[in-house]
Structure formats: structure tokens, C-alpha cells
């Protein structure tokens, strides 16, 4: 019984991604005492410290020929459905109480999560390397190759005069915590099942 509740609670914790940002990229520089920041939600980008942050990031980045951050990307259309489906599936599995399937859910969600991160990396790579050849300022690496401006996937990195931070935000912790709980549900379910068998 306990495992079912944990499974349902764990799945429901994913609802947080519809309300809270998942990831954040923040750019610090001396002339930005309030840093520029972008929050990434399941379905949109949003200025983190000011509603016009993204416009201002675009304005800064045009000097080095980076693309404008798009209003929307295809992932914003599909991701909410995928997560919604996984929440529903998790709750249904919890109700049925088939604990082995909890592990299946956890693995599937982990794969989806890793794919999401990979997708994010690909976008970041393109964003940081696919530069306008007519860029106002063109920087080269010491080896002569064009300098890229890719923000870190996770961590902090110095990019010219900006210090870029890329870290998970609230919804990512709910996502990770919820997924963790579903794994706990599997373990608890495993022992509940063992006990049940012994009692028989």
C-alpha cells in the first residue's frame, strides 16, 4: 500500500514543471549589476530578472553574431504532452500497484530526461557556434578557430566579459525528486511483496 502512495506522489511531483522553471541561464557582467537571465519552462523561455532580459541578451549577442533566442521551439509543443502522459501513466501504475512496472516507468522517464538534456545541449551548441559570418566582432581561439559562445550545460563558464551560469531550477528538483520517489516506490513495493509472500 505504501509503495502505491509513494509512486502516485512521486509521479504527481512532476506537475511542478507546469508551474516552475526547469532550468536557468544567467549572464553576469560588471555593467549588469542585475544580471541578465533566462528561465526555461516546459513550454517557454522567460526573462528571469526582468521581463525584457531575453531581448537584452539578444541585443548583446548580436555583436558576436549569435542567433536570436526564438519565441518558441518545437519542443515547447511536445514536452508538455510527454510529461503529462508520464504523470498519468505513473498515477495509473500506482493505482494498479504493479511495482515491477514502477521500475519500468523510472527507466523510461530517465531516458526521456537524458534525451531532453541532450536536446538542450544540441540547441546550446548550435546557439553558441552557428554564428553570423558578418558578425560585428569576430573572436578567434588561440588555435585560430572561431571562438564559440556556447553556455555550459551545467556549471559556470567565463565567456568574454560575461560569466555564464547554467543550473537547474525548482521544477528540475521536483522532477528529480519525483523520479527518485518512483524508484523508492519500486524498492518498497519489492519488500512489501516479499513480506506478503512470506506471510502466505
Amino acid at each position: 500500500m505504501k509503495s502505491r502512495i509513494i509512486m502516485i506522489v512521486g509521479s504527481l511531483m512532476l506537475i511542478a514543471v507546469f508551474f516552475k522553471p526547469i532550468w536557468n541561464i544567467t549572464l553576469e557582467a560588471p555593467q549588469y549589476p542585475i544580471p541578465l537571465g533566462m528561465d526555461i519552462y516546459i513550454d517557454r523561455f522567460e526573462g528571469a530578472n526582468d521581463e525584457f532580459d531575453i531581448k537584452n541578451i539578444n541585443l548583446m549577442n548580436h555583436y558576436v553574431g549569435m542567433q536570436y533566442i526564438p519565441e518558441s521551439i518545437p519542443e515547447f509543443k511536445s514536452f508538455p504532452y510527454i510529461v503529462g502522459f508520464m504523470i498519468a501513466l505513473g498515477v495509473i501504475l500506482g493505482i494498479t500497484g504493479k511495482f515491477k512496472l514502477y521500475l519500468g516507468w523510472f527507466v523510461l522517464m530517465s531516458i526521456l530526461g537524458l534525451l531532453g538534456l541532450y536536446d538542450f545541449y544540441l540547441w546550446e551548441y548550435d546557439y553558441g557556434h552557428n554564428l553570423d559570418p558578418h558578425a560585428i566582432m569576430q573572436f578567434k581561439n588561440p588555435d585560430g578557430s572561431p571562438m564559440g559562445f556556447q553556455p555550459p550545460l551545467w556549471g559556470t563558464k567565463l565567456i568574454l566579459n560575461f560569466t555564464a551560469h547554467s543550473y537547474p531550477r525548482a521544477a528540475a528538483f521536483f522532477l528529480g525528486g519525483g523520479m527518485g520517489l518512483t524508484f523508492v516506490a519500486f524498492i518498497v513495493g519489492f519488500f512489501e511483496n516479499k513480506k506478503k509472500k512470506l506471510n502466505l
Partner: peptide, 10 residues
Amino acid sequence: FHVTNLEQDY
């Protein structure tokens, strides 16, 4: 000259 500053940064 009707000039608009399109900036939205402080």
C-alpha cells in the same frame, strides 16, 4: 524626426 528608442534595458 520622430525618433523612438526601441531599447528596453535600464
